[in-house]
């Protein structure tokens, strides 16, 4: 069953407990960080009086996982997009491909890893336990649960308070949907959310091309063989004509 997080921005007070809980559970130094980096997987962006939690969206069809040549990133059944350092070759294509610019790199290391929110996959969510951040949130602004149940809950909240909420759940459909869902009372575009991604999952754009390649190869292969046959057949014909005309040319 796929788990997800529902982040209701109307409830968030910006206390930063989620960040500290996250840092604690990964054994990172507890510091207030304004940006994501290799030792900080979540942060709070302040837009007016609204705090926006930034973290890996754990996309339903993750661009990072689709571009990884060795499959070091994968979307797990539990919902988390999980990274295996022992597969990674360090090409950093995932960092380029991620529409939310989430994956960060251990630039200082000589055996660097890609680092990002793991949705506490190994320690918690793979066993059905909630993430450290959702457990730590004192006001329940980050809820952990099954994705379809959280979606239903979000729709219920919008339905009950249609004037309070923007009628959109960010992460329901954006770029094919994600396992981190946002509710807000301030339009998403004013909070630094990307609203131009469309609903098509990004890997589709690549797959549209990649899936056609076998046909292209087959067609081109036959075509080149045909061209080869024709151009070399011409030589044979020429030879034959030469034989026929040979006598008249040599006089």
């Amino acid at each position: 069953m796929s788990y997800a997080l529902l982040i209701d921005l109307t409830g968030c007070v910006g206390c930063g407990e989620c960040q500290r809980a996250c840092q604690r559970s990964h054994g990172f130094p507890e510091v207030e960080a304004k940006n994501l980096n290799d030792k900080n997987f979540t942060c709070l962006d302040q837009h007016g009086d609204v705090f926006v939690r930034r973290m890996c969206q754990h996309c339903e069809q993750p661009a990072c996982a689709s571009v990884c040549p060795v499959g070091a990133l994968e979307k797990t059944k539990a919902g988390a997009v999980n990274y295996s350092a022992d597969k990674c070759i360090g090409c950093r294509y995932c960092m380029l491909a991620c529409p939310y610019d989430i994956p960060k790199y251990e630039w200082a290391s000589n055996n660097p890893r890609v680092r990002k929110c793991t949705m506490c996959y190994d320690e918690r969510t793979s066993k059905g336990q909630p993430t450290a951040c959702s457990e730590a949130c004192p006001v329940g602004a980050t809820l952990f649960g099954k994705r379809d149940e959280l979606l239903a809950e979000a729709h219920k909240r919008i339905g009950e308070n249609p004037d309070k909420y923007v009628h959109r759940i960010y992460g329901e459909k954006e770029a094919g949907g994600a396992s981190v869902l946002y509710l807000t009372s301030v339009p998403f575009e004013k909070l630094g959310f990307k609203t131009t991604l469309g609903n098509e999952a990004l890997p589709e754009k690549t797959w549209n091309v990649l899936s056609k390649l076998p046909d292209v190869v087959a067609t081109a292969g036959v075509l080149f063989s045909a061209v080869y046959w024709i151009t070399h057949r011409r030589d044979e014909v020429r030879a034959f004509e030469q034989k026929m005309n040979g006598k008249s040319n040599v006089n």
């Binding site: 689709s66 070759i89 360090g90 055996n111 890997p203």
Partner: peptide
């Protein structure tokens, strides 16, 4: 020089991800 873990480059031979353009290029 560019790969973070160049010694693992052979992974592309055994660990397949046919959805990746990079895999195909490799």
């Amino acid at each position: 020089f560019d790969l973070g873990r160049p010694w693992a480059i052979w992974h592309a031979i055994v660990m397949w991800n046919p959805h990746s353009v990079m895999f195909e290029v490799a």
